[in-house]
Amino acid sequence: MSITIAARGHLSAARPALGALWPALVRAGRALMPLLVMLVLLVGLWQLAAGRPGSALPAPTKVWADSSDLIIHPFFDHGGLDKGLGLHLFASLQRVAVGFALAAAGGIGLGLLVGTSQIAMRGLDPIFQVLRTVPPLAWLPISLAAFREAQPSAIFVIFITAVWPVIINTAVGVRAVPTDYRNVARVIRLRGAKYFLRILLPAAAPFIFTGLRIGIGLSWLAIIAAEMLIGGVGIGFFIWDAWNSSNISDIVVALLYVGLVGFILDRLVAFAGHLVTRGT
């Protein structure tokens, strides 16, 4: 590249910019190198293992040959369920957004209640402890029976999956407000809503975000499974549909997307937590 630039006579202008960028590029390269090597190794192994004729699973080359369309055109829409992966993911993300928002609001509210009130704690905590062990999919039939429709049932499953860690972590955070902060609040007579907003909530915020982060991960786990059962547009059903039509390559591509999106969701919540708690 530098040669092209030199030939065009922008040498003096390009030098400082490139000079400043170069160390950063080298650092980024060093940091990413192990990952790239690992990826090449893994894909190579996969190719070796699945590349033999008669293999049950497709090798990377076959996945690319069968399903490169899915990667290259994520947003095509041929009507019905014949849509690009991007659109399926978008439908799933919408469900997660609604279910998770409800879980966050309800979970923080209930967590604050259980964390601050001894009576609420005695009454509710045992119930939470039992209900939170119910696997997400076990809620699906009962929510289908209650809502009689796929969409609200899926959202309910997200909600009921994500709400427990939010409740429990919020309650722990509220109870763990250090005595020092409580004493400061008492000396300056900070009470009621002011105490809640200025001391309790900020002190509990790191715990709340831990709960939210666990919750978003569980939401993503649950939505894929729930969509397999309820059908319609969504990445979960896409995978199930691909299985039924023996498009194993499509499944492989979809799994990669599911993993990447789950990773991004986790990082988004972590980032939001970092912004809000400002490293406290």
Binding site: D180, Y181, N183, V184, V187, I188, R189, R198, I199, P202, A203, A205, T277, R278, T280
Partner: peptide, 16 residues
């Protein structure tokens, strides 16, 4: 109350 202000041993500043 604020008429008896306390400086605590471990500063007790609110970190946020």
């Amino acid at each position: 109350g604020p008429d008896r202000a306390v400086v605590f041993q471990n500063h007790s500043l609110l970190p946020w």
